[in-house]
C-alpha cells in the first residue's frame, strides 16, 4: 500500500479513523476541562476559605493530584470506579461485572488532575484582583453573593485565561494516557493503526503531528481570548476607540 492509501479517508485508508479519534481526544479533553473547572473552583474556594479543615483538604487535593503519576490516577478511577460500580450493582441485585465506560473514566481522571492545576490557577487569579476593587464593592453595599458574581467571577475568569490555556495543553497531553482504558482516542487509534499495518513509525508520526496541530491551534485560541479579555486593561487604546 502506498502512503496515500494508508492515510486515505476512504476504502482501506486509516485517515477517517484517525480524524474521528482526534475528535474523541478533543471531546475527552473538553469534558475533563469542564470537570476540572468545577473541581478546581471548589478546591480554590476551600484553599481561600478561613476554615482550617477546608484549607487542609484543598492542600491535600492539590498535592496528591499534582504529585502522583497521571497513569496511576487513571488506574484508580478506571479500576476503582468499576469495582465501585460492580459493588453498587450487586447491592441492587445484579451479579455480573459492571465496567465504568472508558470515556467517563478517562474524562473523570484527567478532569480530577486538571482540577488540581485549575485550583492553583483560580487561586492566583483571585489574588490578582486589586483589593481596593473588592473594598469599593463592599463600600457601595454589595452583599457577598452579588460581589462574587459581579466583581470576583468576571475578574478571576479574565486573569485565569493564560493559566487555563496551560492546563488545557496539559490535559490534552494527559488524555493520551486514557488510551490504557481502551478508549479509542488519538493515541489508541495510532496504536491500532500502526499495529495492524506494521507501519509503527508512520502512524506514530502522524498521531504526533495531529497532537501538534491540536496544541498549536489551541494555543492560538487562548492567545486571542487573552487579548480580547484584556482589552479593558491596556492603555494602548486611548483615544483609539
Amino acid at each position: 500500500m502506498t502512503l496515500f492509501e494508508l492515510l486515505g479517508l476512504g476504502g482501506k485508508g486509516w485517515g477517517a479513523f484517525l480524524l474521528l479519534a482526534t475528535a474523541t481526544t478533543l471531546a475527552v479533553t473538553a469534558t475533563a476541562l469542564a470537570i476540572g473547572a468545577v473541581a478546581g473552583a471548589a478546591i480554590a474556594a476551600a484553599k481561600l476559605s478561613g476554615s482550617v479543615p477546608l484549607r487542609l483538604i484543598g492542600h491535600v487535593y492539590t498535592t496528591v493530584f499534582r504529585g502522583v503519576p497521571e497513569l496511576l490516577i487513571i488506574y484508580l478511577i478506571y479500576f476503582g470506579g468499576s469495582s465501585g460500580l460492580t459493588a453498587v450493582g450487586r447491592w441492587l441485585g445484579y451479579d455480573g461485572f459492571l465496567g465504568l465506560p472508558s470515556f467517563a473514566a478517562g474524562a473523570l481522571a484527567v478532569g480530577i488532575i486538571s482540577g488540581a492545576y485549575q485550583a492553583e490557577v483560580f487561586r492566583g487569579a483571585f489574588h490578582a484582583i486589586p483589593r481596593g476593587e473588592l473594598e469599593a464593592a463592599m463600600a457601595i453595599g454589595m452583599p457577598r453573593r452579588l460581589r462574587f458574581r459581579r466583581i470576583i467571577v468576571p475578574q478571576v475568569l479574565r486573569f485565569a485565561i493564560p493559566g487555563l490555556g496551560n492546563v488545557w495543553q496539559l490535559s490534552l497531553k494527559d488524555s493520551a494516557l486514557v488510551s490504557v482504558t481502551g478508549l479509542v482516542e488519538l493515541m489508541r487509534a495510532s496504536q491500532i493503526a500502526s499495529g495492524s499495518t506494521r507501519q509503527y513509525f508512520l502512524f506514530y508520526i502522524v498521531g504526533g503531528a495531529l497532537y501538534l496541530i491540536l496544541t498549536s491551534l489551541s494555543d492560538r485560541v487562548f492567545n486571542t481570548a487573552e487579548r480580547r479579555a484584556n482589552r479593558s486593561m491596556s492603555a494602548s487604546t486611548i483615544g483609539g476607540a
Binding site: A176, Q199, Y200, G207, G208, Y211, L212, S216
Partner: peptide, 23 residues
C-alpha cells in the same frame, strides 16, 4: 522544543520503542 513540548510523551515513547525497529 515545539515538537517535544507539543505532543504527548507516550506517543514519543512508542515511536522510539516500536518505530525505530522498523528500519
Amino acid at each position: 522544543i515545539f515538537v517535544f513540548r507539543g505532543s504527548p510523551l507516550l506517543i514519543q515513547m512508542f515511536l522510539v520503542f516500536y518505530g525505530l525497529g522498523q528500519f
